[in-house]
Lab assay of single mutants.
Amino acid sequence: MASQGTKRSYEQMETDGERQNATEIRASVGKMIDGIGRFYIQMCTELKLSDYEGRLIQNSLTIERMVLSAFDERRNKYLEEHPSAGKDPKKTGGPIYKRVDRKWMRELVLYDKEEIRRIWRQANNGDDATAGLTHMMIWHSNLNDTTYQRTRALVRTGMDPRMCSLMQGSTLPRRSGAAGAAVKGVGTMVMELIRMIKRGINDRNFWRGENGRKTRSAYERMCNILKGKFQTAAQRAMMDQVRESRNPGNAEIEDLIFLARSALILRGSVAHKSCLPACVYGPAVASGYDFEKEGYSLVGIDPFKLLQNSQVYSLIRPNENPAHKSQLVWMACNSAAFEDLRVLSFIRGTKVSPRGKLSTRGVQIASNENMDAMESSTLELRSRYWAIRTRSGGNTNQQRASAGQISVQPAFSVQRNLPFDKPTIMAAFTGNTEGRTSDMRAEIIRMMEGAKPEEMSFQGRGVFELSDERAANPIVPSFDMSNEGSYFFGDNAEEYDN
């Protein structure tokens, strides 16, 4: 993207840094990872977990959730003011799984939030270390993106479920800051804005008074975040219109849905970061690795190297396929839920299948599930090659597409044709070009129609051997075009429920 120079890199967003050079960025990201790792080690000690239990991804998720809940100030305040039966607002906890007599047992633990905050700050040299908290939120978000298709949420806001490739980060909490905003897809931002506008339509006082002023500035800020994701002048001009509207209503909703559809071809720039579970960072720190000293990046080879040398386990339900569970977590670790499966298959070195073909449910185990038949197995999170994460949407291309997802959002900077089903997408653009945004709409449609099938995206960008740390010898991959490109292809993934 041309304006790259004016933006802070995501590592800076990730670490609240002012302008830093590459070495400083690597050190501050490393410091953040160190903090998460030290916190995780301490929690495993508190909970008396064995090494194996500490490497269980379900335990990692519970521990991450506990610290996120302990620092969720708004919710904590709300819980104190609106006490609900049987919930102690000062405590947080969740299921911890232990191996007892050759069987997995679930144990519900409860801790004072104050105590968890103390352990977290102690692991982070006394700081609140917001960057580390956001990092864990993005890992949870990436896992949700890989596990669930947001059909219901899309339909509720009037969008087409086939636009799911635009929904990265749709389950990120509001408090995820600049680093969170960077990884949100165009569809996620559109959905947040539509929800806001709908509230304004239904509630006369939404934009009024002292609160209304705050609401208005939040609305304009979200519009600017979305505008910054678009790469064409016409899309940005249309966002200006939406932002400046005196009284946002149905016309703005129409414009936003139009823009979301246009992003299936004229893709937005959305950041991709490899955020790993805390149970990967903990053992690495415990083994003596100093992330701050060595430096770390979320968008280069580092996460690949770390996963190459990590042992992570997962509980497996009786009829689940461990290899499929591994694929789910591998995609989440690489922030690749909406990437082209052919690119992923090449990088991973084994075939990556669409969601609907995987015999696996989510990673988390519900409290009512029976533990008797639970097994555990090693997650295979290694890769054959590594590639640089991208934040450009890439230019655009036609490809055989599917009944489910009709476009992709690249996660890796790797040369390819970008699949999208042009006739299906263009069919949504018939007729409606009147109104105050008509010239911009016409211009956007013209650009979409001009998108050429034979153009290559990320020209000359390749993948790298894991021994090639400096990215000196790019390998331009070859793809098996007979395979499906979309992950949520004609899909039956479970729906995400809060």
Rank of each mutant, 00 (worst) to 15 (best):
K184V: 08
A179L: 09
I301H: 12
R221P: 08
L264P: 01
N368S: 14
K422T: 15
L266M: 01
A284D: 08
G394H: 15
C279H: 12
F206Q: 03
R389L: 08
I425Y: 05
E495N: 01
R152D: 11
S438N: 15
R8W: 15
A472S: 02
D480K: 15
Q122C: 01
R99Q: 03
A178H: 03
G450L: 00
R400W: 14
Q58C: 07
S376K: 06
R361A: 13
N76T: 02
E294G: 02
M136N: 13
P410N: 10
P354K: 08
D439F: 09
M238A: 01
M238T: 13
K227H: 11
G94F: 08
A237Y: 09
E254W: 12
L133G: 02
L344H: 06
V67N: 10
L143Y: 06
T146D: 08
E449T: 02
R162E: 10
N473P: 05
A131E: 06
K293D: 07
M426G: 00
G30C: 07
A493G: 04
L226T: 11
Q42K: 12
R195T: 01
K90V: 00
R195M: 06
Y487A: 11
G187V: 13
H272L: 13
G187P: 03
R55F: 10
S314I: 05
Q459L: 00
K452P: 13
Q405S: 10
N395L: 07
Y78G: 09
Q235P: 14
R348S: 14
S367P: 14
K351E: 07
I33P: 10
I475T: 09
K305Q: 14
V329F: 07
A260V: 02
A411Q: 07
E81F: 00
S141H: 08
G228K: 09
K214F: 02
H324K: 10
S297W: 10
N321Q: 03
D16W: 10
T130S: 14
I138H: 14
Y97H: 12
D112G: 14
R8K: 11
R208L: 15
R261W: 15
N211T: 15
G177M: 08
L358D: 11
W120M: 08
R75N: 08
Q409P: 03
S314L: 14
F304A: 05
P303T: 09
G126A: 05
Y296A: 12
A336P: 01
R246G: 01
R317G: 15
R246E: 09
A286M: 09
S392I: 05
E449A: 04
L49V: 00
F429I: 12
D491N: 14
M32P: 07
L381S: 04
M163Y: 15
N368F: 12
R8F: 11
E455D: 08
F71G: 09
N319T: 08
R317D: 11
Y281M: 09
G393V: 12
D127S: 15
I41V: 04
Q459C: 02
I475A: 04
S69R: 09
C275S: 05
L379F: 09
R195D: 10
Q12K: 02
L315I: 04
E484W: 04
K7L: 11
A286K: 13
S274Y: 12
M13F: 10
N202A: 00
Q415Y: 15
K113P: 01
Y487S: 06
S297L: 10
N224R: 10
Q42Y: 07
C164E: 06
G228V: 04
E494K: 08
M371H: 07
G209E: 07
C279N: 12
E244I: 06
N319Q: 01
D491L: 06
T188E: 15
V352L: 02
M159K: 08
N309S: 01
G93K: 13
D290C: 06
T151D: 07
P89D: 04
A260W: 08
D480Y: 05
A263P: 04
I253K: 10
P95V: 06
R117P: 06
R118S: 06
N492D: 12
C44A: 00
T215D: 01
M456N: 05
H82K: 15
G17K: 00
D302P: 05
V242P: 05
V190A: 13
Q405E: 13
G393S: 04
N321D: 14
P354G: 15
K229L: 12
I138F: 12
R446N: 03
S165F: 14
G209Q: 05
L166M: 04
D255Y: 08
N224Y: 03
N59Y: 14
R400D: 12
L341Y: 12
R65G: 03
D468R: 10
Y78C: 06
N498R: 15
S438Q: 12
A403R: 08
D72T: 12
T6K: 13
D101Y: 04
R470W: 13
W330C: 09
D72V: 04
E294R: 00
M105L: 01
G431F: 15
F230V: 12
N319Y: 14
G35L: 02
G177H: 04
T424A: 03
N205A: 06
N144K: 03
A323W: 06
N417C: 01
G54Y: 06
V100R: 00
Q231H: 01
L193C: 00
A451T: 13
M1A: 10
M66R: 02
A179W: 10
T157C: 13
M447P: 05
E294L: 02
Y52I: 15
F258D: 10
F346M: 06
Q399R: 15
I425R: 12
D16E: 13
A178W: 14
L110H: 13
E443I: 10
A131L: 05
Q58N: 15
